[in-house]
Simulated assay, not measured.
Amino acid sequence: MDKLVQILTESGLPFAYDHFAEGESPEPPFVCYLLPGSDNFAADGAVYYKISEVHIELYTDCKDLSVEQQLEAVLDRHCIFYEKTETWIESERLYEVLYYFEMEV
């Protein structure tokens, strides 16, 4: 997913797939991304068009609209239609803003 890595690089935020290694997590804000599934298009009994589900998890220690806007501006520039949710993770004392969408593989 070269395009996804390019998008995350453009955001200027530190990022890792799934999680950062033990002891290597940067100070918030940071991003973890996952590819939890697919929604492929079939034709003639085969995968014709590969589509991957994408989750981008933005972690902050306080609600930070400017960082959300920074990430969203990059997604918007790449014409990515996303949905988002937000949750407070008490055990980590972090906010997680989850952006989810589908992307061609």
Results as ranks from 00 to 15, higher is better:
36 P>T: 00
89 I>Y: 08
7 I>Y: 09
44 D>F: 09
105 V>T: 14
4 L>A: 04
89 I>A: 02
103 M>H: 06
69 Q>D: 15
87 T>H: 04
49 Y>K: 14
2 D>E: 14
51 I>M: 12
72 E>M: 12
64 D>Y: 00
24 E>D: 13
83 E>H: 10
8 L>A: 10
2 D>A: 08
1 M>Q: 04
42 A>Q: 08
59 Y>E: 00
83 E>W: 07
26 P>I: 02
34 L>Y: 13
76 D>A: 14
26 P>T: 02
70 Q>C: 01
53 E>T: 07
100 Y>G: 01
27 E>A: 11
48 Y>T: 08
42 A>V: 09
47 V>S: 07
39 D>M: 07
41 F>H: 15
14 P>M: 06
71 L>F: 07
17 Y>W: 06
44 D>M: 06
56 I>T: 04
81 F>C: 09
24 E>G: 03
17 Y>V: 12
77 R>G: 15
3 K>W: 05
37 G>F: 00
19 H>G: 08
100 Y>M: 01
62 C>W: 12
21 A>Q: 14
95 Y>W: 13
62 C>N: 11
74 V>G: 07
88 W>E: 03
26 P>E: 00
62 C>A: 09
37 G>I: 01
27 E>Y: 08
67 V>Q: 06
92 E>N: 06
37 G>V: 00
56 I>G: 02
57 E>W: 05
21 A>V: 11
23 G>F: 02
58 L>K: 03
19 H>C: 10
30 F>P: 03
46 A>C: 11
78 H>Q: 11
2 D>C: 01
104 E>R: 08
76 D>Y: 09
79 C>S: 15
20 F>H: 07
99 Y>M: 02
103 M>G: 06
63 K>Q: 10
50 K>E: 12
105 V>C: 11
28 P>H: 02
13 L>W: 03
2 D>I: 09
20 F>Q: 01
12 G>M: 08
63 K>Y: 14
65 L>C: 00
11 S>M: 06
16 A>T: 09
